[in-house]
Design a protein around this nucleic acid. Structure first.
Length: 461
RNA sequence: GUCCCGUUCGUCUAGAGGCCUAGGACACCGGGUUUUCAUCCCGGCAACAGGGGUUCGACUCCCCUACGGGAUGCCA
């Protein structure tokens, strides 16, 4: 059996899109589970829109998320000769012809066709003219006029196209450069690709590409057309309806593993299992089980999955990955006397790193503002805080359990409700009523800092 | 317009003719733990697009309609 080779073939006209990450992921996983190769090919034949900057973004992001190719990526823009040679071969075999129709003429033709209610497509008017190559001619594939072509899709089964639905596509532009279809087919062959896994927007391109393969005498490929990732408006995910670039999600503090997990579960599932790491996917994923219908990308599922992946991290890993997010807030993670206790207590405060970093601010910096509503609700007068301050000063063994005991005593002796005692302290320490359990929070801040913050609040109100 | 692909809870999905009183997860709502917040636990809400067949029996098979998406470029 032939070694399975898959490829991800982005065109560098934008940053890496999460839909693209999913396509790359499925290609990667399929290759790995078949002990094959995963390749990347940069389809930069559109010189106007392709940029090196986007190419770098795509390559960097893919490898940092763990989807590195097994060979150095190739650029189509550097392989012109190969395509030209293939085109010549098609001309020689009589399966292509030169056409001198101008863009204006074609435009007019399409308009007329549309007006007449028929499918706009090139009518083959230059096909039998026997034109020679010139500066005004494009090379067109002579597509068989009748019969049909069957695409065998791993996910969808047989898809039949009538050859008369297909027009004679352009292989070489008038400036001599090759087009997408030609390059794509030639490179899949040159790279020994066995399996094409791509978005379903390519389904109708497939029969055209098969015709090119046939003209060139290339062997058949295996195809799997993935359902598209959709936005909440059910249209394909784009900048208009969602954050699409992988980078944005990473910068928000979503874990790579959680992003991959979410993407894999979009259009695919395995029993009741929800948590998948890359290794699990290589074990459990089955391309045949992929859904046929497009799937809406739901950020709340990502949020939940992220919280699950975050919870699975060791404290060390958690801290390491959190660090850059704190740095963005000009906070150095070790600028605290008991970092481990702090982070351990706060790691579930949000489901993204950026959110967690945000909620950590009061633990690293002085309080800039108090939650006024909380103050009016819980601080009627200063007496309770004053007494608590005196009590704190006298606690020698400053740890969670002893603090809790002291607080409990104070509360019962003075016949106060729990919130009457606890909330003012929370406000003093964090500026709001949100914090871990009280004794723990006080322990996190330490005796000195706790007293200082109670004093600060006392002088504020 | 034409061709192609699709259609199960709000969302991701399970479901290969009887196992379906349609299951799970997220979200949402309610309750419990945390005397706060988050986590966690428990419970609830909620779907087979519509119509025809086929069959003793259809979420499952066939046809039609509707709706959605994709393609129809000297873009990829």
């Amino acid at each position: 059996m032939k070694k399975v080779i898959t490829r991800f073939a982005p065109s560098p006209t934008g940053t890496l899109h999460i839909g693209g990450v999913r396509t790359a992921l499925f290609n990667y996983v399929y290759a790995k589970q078949n002990d094959g190769l995963f390749l990347i090919r940069i389809e930069d034949t559109d010189r106007e829109r392709s940029t090196k900057k986007y190419e770098k973004d795509i390559l960097d992001n893919l490898s940092s998320i763990g989807l590195s190719p097994d060979q150095k990526p190739i650029n189509q823009s550097e392989r012109n000769e190969i395509y030209t040679k293939a085109a010549e071969k098609i001309v020689e075999s009589g399966n292509a012809y030169w056409c001198d129709c101008s863009p204006e003429e074609l435009d007019k033709m399409r308009n007329e066709q549309t007006a007449a209610g028929i499918k706009p497509m090139y009518d083959g008017r230059s096909r039998n003219l026997g034109l020679e190559r010139s500066e005004k001619t494009v090379l067109r594939l002579a597509t068989p006029e009748d019969g049909d072509i069957i695409v065998n899709d791993i996910i969808r089964g047989e898809i039949k196209f009538n050859n008369n639905e297909l027009d004679d596509l352009i292989l070489l532009r008038s400036d001599g450069t090759p087009t997408y279809h030609l390059c794509n087919v030639v490179d899949d062959y040159e790279q020994n690709v066995t399996t094409v896994i791509r978005g379903e927007d390519h389904i109708s391109n497939t029969p055209r590409q098969i015709h090119i393969q046939n003209a060139l005498g290339y062997p058949e490929l295996e195809y799997a057309h993935l359902p598209l990732v959709l936005g909440t408006d059910k249209k394909r995910l784009s900048k208009r309806n969602a954050a699409t670039s992988l980078k944005e999600y990473r910068e928000k503090g979503y874990l790579d593993s959680a992003i991959l997990n979410t993407l894999a579960r979009l259009g695919w599932s395995k029993g009741d299992k929800e948590i998948f790491y890359l290794n699990d996917l290589i074990k459990d994923f089955d391309i045949k089980e992929v859904q046929k219908a497009g799937a809406i990308f739901d950020i709340s599922k990502l949020d939940w999955l992220n919280s699950q992946h975050l919870a699975n991290l060791s404290l060390e890993d958690f801290k390491n990955q959190l660090e850059p997010f704190l740095e963005k807030l000009n906070i150095s993670i070790n600028d605290h006397h008991d970092v481990d206790l702090l982070i351990q207590s706060m790691r579930t405060s949000d489901n993204t790193y950026s959110g967690i970093a945000e909620s950590l601010i009061p633990y690293y910096r002085e309080i800039e503002s108090y939650d006024e509503k909380a103050i009016t609700k819980f601080i009627k007068d200063k007496s309770i805080l004053n007494s608590l301050k005196d009590i704190f000063v006298n606690i020698d063994n400053w740890n969670e359990s002893s603090i809790d005991i002291v607080l409990k005593e104070f509360q019962t002796q003075n016949e106060l409700s729990v919130p009457a005692v606890n909330q003012p302290i929370r406000i003093a320490l964090t500026g709001s009523t949100k914090s871990p359990s009280l004794g723990l929070t006080l322990a996190i801040f330490g005796k000195e800092k706790s007293i200082e913050r109670v004093e600060n609040l006392l002088s504020y109100v």
